[in-house]
Design a protein around this nucleic acid. Structure first.
Lengths: 123, 123
DNA sequence: TATATTGATATACTTTTGTATAGTAAAAAT
DNA sequence: ATTTTTACTATACAAAAGTATATCAATATA
């Protein structure tokens, strides 16, 4: 028996390295304690450092700086320095960053239906 | 100016607590170093502890046990004890677990298009 | 009877991630 | 002139996540 238990290998076999890299890219952008709150805050209209900090509340400046840098490095947000007086610095979503919402949408869908299917009313 | 910079608040305002919980559930299932490799391995047809361990190779038994327990607790896989001699133990995806593929699909999509848009040929 | 295999657990350690708290420079407001 | 605001950085520490290595009980195989 050469197929040892597998009914239809064609559906799961095709998973090139690029897909794994792509998934890891996506995970890097959204995992960690503060990434989603920060992205949500910016999407909500809080563009300035202080605004985001005030909006999220429990975040320390160290974490906020660290995460903003990483998000910028990953091409999800931009850091714009406006040379008005005083200097204004605004963080905004890139086009690609905005598209992460499509990922969050299906994550909500799966999460909700999974909660229903397991009927866990705890936590 | 009462809308302070926001063009269309209706699109982003609606984000109930349940959505946040749902996203966190989903993240818990797929984040961490070994979750996806383990799920992929089981989906690929490796149901037994040893099979998964051999398939993933660099994983330690401690991590494999820990993650399998967590995945079971989260309702993504089941642990089935078959009382043949010797005892066989098989880990399999739940129906809900199989559906996580829809999430991975859009994560691949976003990751690929994001890579294109930022043109990072490094790492 | 001795060795190998399966499905793990135990203990100690390192690395990564996040927290707590203080401080800073430049400009604005009082 | 002093205080406040903005946008951070620095240092030390705690907690979570992951690694390394050894061990184990039950059965199977040589």
């Amino acid at each position: 028996m050469i197929m040892n238990g597998l009914q239809n290998i064609s559906e799961i076999k095709k998973c090139p390295v690029q897909y794994v890299l792509a998934i890891n890219d996506t995970l890097n952008v959204i995992s960690g304690k503060w990434k989603l709150p920060i992205l949500a805050s910016i999407l909500y209209g809080n563009y300035r450092y202080k605004d985001i900090q005030t909006n999220i509340d429990k975040i320390t400046p160290r974490m906020l700086s660290k995460e903003l840098k990483e998000l910028e490095l990953n091409g999800v947000i931009t850091r714009n320095v406006y040379d008005s007086t005083p200097v204004r610095i605004e963080y905004k979503m890139t086009e690609s960053g905005k598209n992460i919402l499509t990922v969050l949408d299906v994550m909500v869908d799966w999460g909700v239906s999974h909660r229903k299917s397991t009927l866990k009313h705890s936590d």
